[in-house]
Structure formats: C-alpha cells, structure tokens
C-alpha cells in the first residue's frame, strides 16, 4: 500500500511542479506570441524583461520588509511595481530597438532584439550584481491549502491558480475589449487596420506592455517560490517560453497556453522519471522536433510569411 501511495504522491509532486513551470512558461509564451502576432517579430529581449521584473520586485520587497509590512501587502505592492516597471521597459524596448527598424529587413530587428537582451543583462550585472541574490518568500500558505500539503505544494497551487486567473483575464481582454480587437485585426491585416482608423503604433506599444506585465507577474511568483534570482534567469526561461510558444503555434494565444503547460509537464516528468541532468535536453529536443515536423505548432495554422 505504501508503495502505491509513494508512486501516486511522487506523480502528483511532478505533476504540480510541471504545471507550475508550465504556467510560468505560458505567461511568458503569451508575450512572445502577442508580439509576434502584431509585428511578426520574435522579441528576444522578452526574457530580460522578466528578469528585470524580478529585480524590481526584489528592491520593492526589500524596502518593504525593512519597514515591516504585512507579507500580503508586500506581495501586492511588489507585484504592482514590478508590473508597472516591466510595462515601461517593454514600451521603451519597442520604441528604441524595434520601431526605428520596422521598415528594415527582419534580420535587422532580430539582431537588435538580441542586442537589447545582452544590453539588459549587462546593465543588471553593473547596476545590481553578477551573483545570485536571495528573494523573500512572499507567497503565503493559506490554511485551506495546508490540508492538501501532503499531496501538493501549497505555493505551487497558488502560483498555478493565479496564473490561470491572469490567463483567463487576458483571453477576455483579447476577445472582448477594443484594444484586444485592435491587436487581432493588426495581426490579420495591418494596412486594413490602419484604414479603419486603428492607431497601430499605440496598439503595438500596448502589446509590448501587456506582454511585459505578464512576464513580471510570472517573475515575481517564481522568484518568491524558488527564493533566488540573478541576471541570467531570463535567458533560459525566455528561450524555453519561446519554445513553448513555437510548440503551441507562434501567434496563437491558445497555442501559447497549451505549449507552456505541455512543455512544463514534459520537463517535470522527464526530470522526475529520467534524470534532472537532461531537463534542458528534453526542452530543446522538443523545439527541434517541432520545427522539423510541425513548424506550425500543435494548434497553429499554416505559417504565412509576414511582410
């Protein structure tokens, strides 16, 4: 009996940690896919916005901890500040690194994206530190989740639930609001959107800001869960989330969500049942296999060349 119990609880543990990673990947993948949808560019600096979000959070949380605020208040203010700052970063990155190159060949914008990514990492090394720094455990463990703590890690459950909530809100925003409709119309036919009076520049800025807000949200949750951050955290997570977006079908919102969750679960089970040394090998094997056999992704439509 104990044997069965162990197998089950080990499975649940992997499942929940897979979903946790997966929701983080999904939140970031949304940023990649939204930006790709409106301007046809892979924003390789997106992972760095996530990293910067975590550092902003660390500073805010640090100050508030010294002032002895309640943990929920700290979490709330930290999230808010990180999201606002990240939005400002996303906005600025687009204006500085991509907008001047909108008419240029796509390779130029791609190189600019990589340059921006390196710039932000070096900037954080210089302005903060090249070392790992510890991040306060801001996520509370409410009583109702302690009841299931033998099966599922309460922090992970909270991360999964709050990520899902944010994703649902985003879906509603994309589907129902004016700015959401503007985004979707630009991704279908930018010139026609212009002819209908949609302010394309403003909508592109909004898209970058929205993606950055999601990234900062993910960054704070995971940093508070893992307990440490450094300048490099955005790099691997960024590439994996990009993998998730491609896995689901780049440009597709539902694809980003699905891709994120599938990638997170795959990684978790692969490391749990095989070997944790191979975590990244699995993730990137998926990327290569998808690119070879189904470049349009799990639920993406046939990729059309963007002009």
């Amino acid at each position: 009996m104990t044997g069965t119990y162990d197998i089950l609880s080990y499975f649940l543990e992997l499942f929940s940690s897979g979903l946790t990673r997966g929701s983080i990947y999904a939140l970031l993948a949304l940023g990649y896919t939204l930006v790709y949808g409106v301007i046809g560019l892979i924003n390789f600096a997106h992972g760095e916005v996530y990293m910067v979000g975590a550092f902003i959070g660390l500073i805010v949380a640090g100050i508030m901890s010294i002032m002895d605020y309640n943990i929920l208040a700290i979490l709330f203010v930290t999230l808010t500040f990180a999201m606002i700052y990240a939005a400002a970063y996303g906005f600025t990155i687009e204006k500085v690194a991509y907008k001047p190159l909108r008419q240029a060949p796509r390779l130029a914008a791609l190189i600019s994206a990589i340059g921006m990514s390196i710039f932000l990492r070096e900037y954080v090394i210089l302005a903060q530190t090249p070392d790992f720094v510890s991040f306060p455990a801001l996520i509370p463990k409410p009583a109702f989740l302690l009841a299931i703590k033998n099966y599922l890690e309460p922090t992970e459950v909270l991360i999964i639930l709050s990520s899902l909530t944010i994703m649902v809100l985003l879906l509603i925003l994309i589907k129902r609001t004016k700015v959401g409709k503007a985004m979707r119309s630009i991704s279908q036919d930018r010139e026609m959107a212009l002819l209908l009076g949609i302010n394309v520049n403003k909508t592109i800025s909004m898209t970058f800001m929205l993606g950055s807000v999601l990234a900062a949200f993910a960054a704070i949750l995971i940093a508070a869960h893992i307990g440490q951050i450094n300048y490099n955290i955005g790099f691997i997570v960024g590439i994996k989330s990009f993998t998730a977006a491609v896995l689901g079908g780049i440009g597709s919102i539902r694809g980003a969500l699905l891709g994120g969750l599938v990638l997170g679960l795959t990684e978790s089970f692969a490391t749990g049942y095989f070997s944790s040394d191979y975590e990244d090998v699995f993730a990137f094997s998926i990327l290569i296999l998808i690119l070879i056999f189904k470049p349009s992704g799990l639920i993406g439509t046939v990729a059309t060349e963007k002009v």
């Binding site: 979707r184 119309s185 279908q188 010139e191 026609m192 002819l195």
Partner: peptide
C-alpha cells in the same frame, strides 16, 4: 477607404 481586394478580416 474601402481598399482593393476587400481585405475582410478572415478570422473575425
């Protein structure tokens, strides 16, 4: 303007 080729948003 109603441009040439109609330019309907196909997914809408």
């Amino acid at each position: 303007q109603v441009p040439e080729g109609r330019r309907i948003f196909p997914d809408f």
